[in-house]
Simulated assay, not measured.
Amino acid sequence: MGYRLSDAARAAGHRLHVYDRLGSTNTEALEKARGGETGPLWIVAHRQEAGRGRRGNGWSSLPGNLTASVLWPVAGVEPERVATLSFVAAVALAEAIDRAYTGARATDGPALGLKWPNDVLLGGAKLAGILLEAETLPGGRRAVVIGFGVNVAAVPAEMASRAASLAGSGIAVDAEGLLEHLTDRLAATARVWNRGRNFSEIRGLWLARASGLGSPIAVRAGIETLNGIFDQIDEGGRLVILAPDGMRRTVTAGEVHFGTAATAA
């Protein structure tokens, strides 16, 4: 059937470019921005050969998995609100998977969780990653790209013990069908977000699915590790930890561990 946008996404002005192979869908989207494109423009590749994740990590893309990026317009968005788009994207992806699941099975939805700052978990294992990248272009125009990597059909061998796929969990949806659901839900959650003016509602939706909320957490940033209880995310999307001394500490970036992994960190 091929990749396609939802009716709601098309009505909201989204467009779609599909490629057989790309090095990186995020890189291609940024190249489009440098050429004057403003978006919303989706870039999808059947095969991605040089994908990347957060903190310089690579992202393996297997046949049948979803590799997609969207160049998102941020004119009029306050700079400090741009980063909250990653939470908009995470909520949209979780809702898209819910829809794919209920379309395949008339049962309760899968055990999805959102892990700060950018992962979607299924049964506690990593199902998807989201990468937000921004660039200031000549003339001061900002380009922001949201990248999605979802294990739809398979899990990379190097992640077999700590990752999950939709197919492996009995969710019968292909990458094409999932993209259609995702474009629909991102159009909807972006309307709620309202250029960052209503992040509080997105924050509530994200927290309702938050993995490890209220549990022991350890965040490694460089050579430092901060331990405590995962308390919440604040209005800027920063992680808030209740430290052993009773003080709340705010984290902007780091590697997160929960439960027994947190106590051992």
Rank of each mutant, 00 (worst) to 15 (best):
L226Y: 13
I146Y: 01
P138Q: 01
H17R: 15
A94Q: 11
T183Y: 04
Y101N: 14
F87C: 09
G149M: 08
D98L: 13
E49L: 14
F199P: 03
E201G: 04
R105V: 13
E28C: 10
V77D: 01
G51K: 06
D98G: 11
L22D: 08
N194K: 10
E49G: 08
L137K: 04
G56Y: 00
D7Q: 14
G196E: 02
D234E: 14
G36W: 04
V240R: 15
G168L: 01
V18W: 02
G254T: 06
R248A: 12
E78A: 15
A89G: 09
A83P: 14
T263K: 14
A11G: 06
A45T: 10
L137W: 02
A265H: 04
G109C: 10
N65K: 12
G35R: 07
A154S: 15
A90L: 00
L122H: 04
D174S: 01
A153K: 00
E80L: 10
V88S: 13
I229A: 05
R195W: 11
L131T: 08
G140M: 07
A160F: 01
S200T: 15
H17G: 10
E255A: 12
V77M: 11
R47F: 02
Y3V: 06
A172M: 02
M1I: 10
K126M: 08
A187M: 05
K126D: 10
F87M: 14
G129N: 04
H14E: 08
G228L: 00
G170H: 03
V256K: 12
P244Y: 11
A265Y: 09
G168Y: 02
A11P: 05
I217K: 05
L30M: 14
V219Y: 10
A243K: 10
F258R: 05
E78G: 08
V120A: 10
E78Y: 00
A188M: 08
H46G: 06
T252G: 11
E37T: 06
G259A: 13
D98F: 07
A175Y: 01
P63L: 09
V120I: 15
L41V: 12
N118W: 00
L127R: 02
L62T: 00
R238Q: 14
H257N: 11
L85I: 03
R21Y: 11
P244E: 10
V120R: 06
D108M: 08
T263P: 01
N194M: 03
S24F: 00
K126V: 04
W42T: 09
A9P: 02
A75R: 13
A210F: 01
A90E: 00
R105A: 14
G2P: 09
A253Y: 11
